[in-house]
Design a protein around this nucleic acid. Structure first.
Lengths: 176, 176
DNA sequence: CCGAGATACTTAACATGTTAAGTGAATGCG
DNA sequence: CGCATTCACTTAACATGTTAAGTATCTCGG
């Protein structure tokens, strides 16, 4: 495990065509999406092993947490809360229901909607996971600093807000 | 757009088996992983349509960008640069090679390693995508503010750094 | 009433994330 | 030299992300 071939820092000879040089791009490792991806991965890396011990994925855990705070929700509303796309949620709910961690019933007023709620078993599972999860979060907070953490989340919220309504709604360009 | 706000006619009866609200945790929507996820999604939502028009996924684009800066890399090194796991990279490289966007050859000194490089077609494709991509990035920067963006990325880097070496190496707790 | 359009999901299809196992090639050590 | 280890990937298997269709239900104008 010595050095990995060359050092890519300098040199940077764009090889074949000069097309790449005509459109110079930022150092890709410093792009915002990459920064966000790496930071999130660094955080999730802490939680995954604990969740895995309880047979839960990150998304399943998100759903249970979202359900724990309310009586029942429609699937669409749950998708927004847990930040999952409909198809993902649909699959996960099917599995969680098969494991008896959640319950569903059709809304009486509207046969299209189904109301989802956490089951007693789901609550028990949560109770066995939550302490560990909270401890990990506390350690992260301790390492990074509570104040900085709040600042970071504030900035993330602002970023999200400043991009709201750019590409989310179809801009109806009629450009085809 | 009928409002779905409060109680949709069924008045959400206290529900016989409702087990919610028994495991107190932080408001889950304010957790760090969720903040990071939402922020990243808000950003990527801007890029995906453009990439899609060129038949590229986000990950494929990351790989091409990483390759554009160098002559050739080993797969393992590329995985680190593009922040992809081995198996994902393996599949994507197979597809990119089939599309003639990259090239591969076995390293002479070590038959296990394969050196990957971008092809001329790959460079051409990049040249057709990069301007649009840069424009989007510029717009994001404009909206959020260049200084704040730099600050944010600084903090993300610190977060990543402060968590380095927590759960990455197996802690061999022997706690079971 | 009725049928066109909107809603609330669900399925399908393809691509990636994630972990575990497999394969072939180098290395190190007795 | 022989062979167990380690390495550098690749496959496999399952779960989710992402977009497009499909299905049943509801709403509303005529």
């Amino acid at each position: 495990m010595t050095k990995k071939s060359a050092d890519p820092a300098n040199a940077s000879a764009p090889a074949a065509g000069s097309a790449a040089r005509q459109v110079p791009m930022r150092d890709f490792s410093r792009s915002l999406p990459m920064s966000l991806l790496r930071a999130r991965e660094a955080v999730m890396r802490q939680f995954r092993p604990s969740l895995r011990e309880h047979g839960l994925t990150e998304q399943q855990w998100r759903i249970l947490r979202a359900l724990a705070a309310i009586e029942a929700v429609e699937v669409t509303e749950l998708a927004r809360t847990a930040f999952l796309l409909g198809p993902s949620l649909s699959r996960i709910l099917r599995d969680l229901e098969a494991r008896n961690l959640i319950e569903r019933r059709i809304a009486k007023a509207d046969q299209r909607r189904s109301m989802v709620s956490i089951s007693k078993e789901g609550v028990k599972l949560m109770a066995s996971v939550a302490p560990n999860s909270e401890a990990i979060y506390a350690e992260i907070t301790r390492r990074f600093g509570a104040r900085k953490l709040a600042e970071l989340q504030e900035m993330l919220g602002e970023l999200e807000h400043s991009l709201a309504g750019l590409g989310s709604a179809d801009d109806a360009r009629a450009e085809e």
